[in-house]
Design a protein around this nucleic acid. Structure first.
Lengths: 179, 179
DNA sequence: GTCTATAATTCGATAGAC
DNA sequence: GTCTATCGAATTATAGAC
């Protein structure tokens, strides 16, 4: 099959995101990604140079936190996180990989520290404990993703979005603004 | 060097636990484990048969939940979990591996479902929502381990045991017995 | 109990024809 | 743009000498 340059690159990248999200960095081989994209493995190297660079492109991600009213910040964050997880594979790539890959772990720290912390400061006006608050929020949100989407605890998989929001919102709200 | 059979086996197992805990299943090679144990790679195969069986032995783990007074169950669980994590590498092995290995994920489900759920039923006398409650507890505890020991968010690393217990106890307590 | 040698795979990466 | 062929490295696993 003959495709345009941008088209081919996009197909490869989509397959790479799926594989990295499902298998992590090491088990997601270039050969498997190429097979998914119905393309020759050599093409992957041609377009992205190395596996490392392909991963960097696949792990591109932005939380894109919305503006949230102070008293609804907890619920808003949980809901936004759940929807982002299901809409964008980037987060899944980072979590599956960050566990055994220092570069991915570093990006996780940057994303949550860099994006949740300003929200906390904005909500509380207290820069002092903002880093810890942001990390506590991250711990619950990532624990949610871990148990629901990665480890697949049956009750977490079965729960509806609204159930999870109802259970987790008070937790996140307290980490954000509580004593 | 000449060692007894049980001694050699114990040395190998200790090295395996460290490697699996630090690198996950795939990156922890038999060669690296053997090098750590200052032993020939062939010896590892001799004692454990396959890498898979070696992993099964290294991932042996028990939460060993203590009896907890109802009103202190949250704080007790958080504290017990933190100490168990640091004393026994088994949990770390399972978390690092469960993210990309279905067998380890299954064991995680068994451990948390099987050991936290009875505690919930004992505390609440309500078997109906016990599975979800146990999973919520697991989500926060595993999120704690993830952010503090794996991804190493600086504020979580810097926090003392008592700080973490103070922040997380109300969360866990509510998941256990709250509305 | 310990080690050497090696079989059998698999992977990332490169060179080059078309 | 696409593919074949292949290199070099690394891995699990096995056979067998000492």
């Amino acid at each position: 099959m003959r495709r345009s340059s941008v088209e081919t690159k996009a197909v490869i990248l989509a397959a790479a995101r799926e594989r990295f999200a499902a298998d992590g960095y090491d088990k997601a081989t270039i050969r498997a990604i190429a097979a998914d994209a119905r393309i020759d493995p050599a093409m992957v190297m041609r377009y992205f140079g190395t596996k490392e660079k392909l991963f960097a492109a696949a792990a591109e991600f932005d939380l894109e936190l919305p503006d949230l009213a102070p008293e609804q910040a907890g619920a808003g964050l949980v809901r936004h996180f759940l929807r982002t997880w299901e809409a964008d594979e980037g987060l899944q790539v980072l979590l599956r990989t960050g566990v055994t890959n220092e570069a991915a772990a570093e990006r996780m720290r940057t994303i949550f520290g860099g994006q949740v912390m300003p929200l906390v400061i904005d909500l509380t006006g207290d820069p002092e404990r903002a880093p810890l608050r942001a990390s506590l929020v991250a711990s619950q949100l990532l624990g949610l993703a871990l148990s629901r989407y990665i480890l697949k605890f049956p009750p977490m998989v079965a729960a509806t979005e609204e159930e999870l929001v109802a259970w987790l919102s008070p937790t996140v709200q307290r980490y954000l603004t509580g004593p």
